[in-house]
Amino acid sequence: MTEYDLTTVTAALSRRDWDDSTDGEVRFALVGLGWWTREYVLPVLTDLDACAATVAVSGTASKRESVVDDWDRVETALSYEEFHEGVAVDEYDAVYVCTPNATHLDHARAAADHGKAVLCEKPMEATPERAAAMVDACERADVPLIVAYRMQTDPAVRSLRTAVRDGLLGDPVHVHGHMSQRIGDIFPDGNWRLDPDLAGRGGSVTDLGIYPLNTTRFLLDVEPVSVRATASSDGELFAEIPDERASFEVTFDDGTVAQCFASQNAEFSAGLEIVGTQGSLRLAPGFFDAETQRITLTRDGERHSVTYDPVDQMREEFAYVAHHLLRGEPVDPTGAHGVVDVATIDAIYDAAESGERVSVDTDPDPAE
């Protein structure tokens, strides 16, 4: 392995591998105006040529009114009830859903009823059955359902995906992934991610563990078969969830095994390493896109590293989705893809409770 080989692999770290020359604009209704929408989504939608935010939807009047006041293109503020009833339906073309997990289905179903494409934050829902019901709703309405896995539209990750699939590492053997943060420092007054009624069965695997899980699926084009897991919670902040910290092992359909760790109460850290028969690839901090990234490639006993400043992943995600919608092209990752992650997370919690290996049901029955 020479330095030139690594340069070839990393040459397209910030270059889009899809056609972004389409004319037109997709107008988004933003459903849910929490910190992520206000701090990470609205800023990137101010100057993207292919899309814009035009409608703000929230259950809190002050939030939606402040967004209309602060952002020029956002001219309409709606309550959730008004959005569901179809008020101002002609003022947007697609819907971005960024609310607590257990509420995604209701908002996505309403968007589908209005004939609008849906971009839904991950995880899709709190249960596999409700995630499957979202897929059904959008299929019946014949509208696209896209899950907002920002790693999948990051040019660097897409470049690495091509290299890995072209045999850069030989045959994948095992994966190590981790992601952790101190949620109490981020949200000192508490947060819905620690409320099972809103988040689902847990907080660390659901919110953080999904990153190494889905990024592995994307890079290797594999599907989970079975899982093992452990989880524990000691702190008062985590009294309602089982996974203040969790470790889990996922066996995929090609035999690759991923070992992952997630915690909402540990040092701010993340990374992903793929080990193959001919080499290894490490991305760190990986899932935290505001940090300088380092890619380390080891092959035949030689190690090479490169650092780079990442793109704004939310900008890439919305640009990618908007251009594909404008061109009438299929948009990945689909809802069906997202259901598999929700089902895998559900199996991880089952495995942590039982102490046994649990098979993943990748085709759950939709909830009523």
Rank of each mutant, 00 (worst) to 15 (best):
A52N: 00
E273I: 05
I186S: 14
E139V: 08
D90V: 02
E353R: 15
S58E: 06
T2S: 13
A156Y: 05
C138T: 12
L119Y: 02
R201T: 14
R299K: 13
E267S: 13
A156F: 14
C120K: 01
C120T: 06
L6D: 05
W36R: 15
A367L: 11
T22H: 00
S62F: 04
T54V: 02
A141W: 03
T76H: 06
D49Q: 04
T99S: 05
D346C: 07
L6P: 03
L194N: 10
V135S: 10
F187L: 14
D243N: 09
E75D: 14
E85W: 13
R282G: 10
T292C: 13
E240Q: 15
L213A: 11
A94V: 01
P310S: 13
D312H: 10
R182H: 13
R303C: 12
F248M: 02
V331T: 01
V331P: 00
G276C: 08
R130V: 05
Y40N: 15
E25D: 09
F288A: 15
R130W: 04
L198P: 02
A322V: 02
T10A: 15
Y80A: 12
A52D: 00
E356W: 04
D312P: 03
K116A: 03
E244V: 07
T362R: 12
T37I: 11
D189I: 07
A343C: 14
G286K: 06
H337G: 03
L145G: 01
P242M: 12
H304L: 11
T37K: 05
P128S: 14
R38K: 11
V68S: 02
L6H: 06
L326P: 01
S354W: 05
E329T: 00
N101D: 09
T206H: 07
W192P: 06
R109Y: 04
A110F: 09
V57A: 07
A133W: 02
E121C: 12
V358H: 04
P155W: 03
P364I: 13
V67E: 07
A229Y: 03
R73V: 00
T99P: 02
D154V: 11
E85F: 12
Q259R: 13
A132V: 08
N191W: 14
A94H: 01
W192I: 06
T296R: 10
P366Y: 09
D195G: 06
D309F: 12
D254V: 10
G355A: 03
R294D: 10
G301H: 12
V360R: 05
G177S: 08
P172W: 05
A132G: 09
D49M: 02
A343K: 05
D243C: 09
I186C: 15
Q152K: 15
A61S: 10
T10P: 07
E356N: 13
R27P: 01
S14D: 11
A347F: 08
W35H: 10
A148F: 03
V275H: 11
V275M: 05
T230S: 08
D300S: 14
M134V: 06
A50L: 00
A258G: 09
S226W: 07
A347D: 03
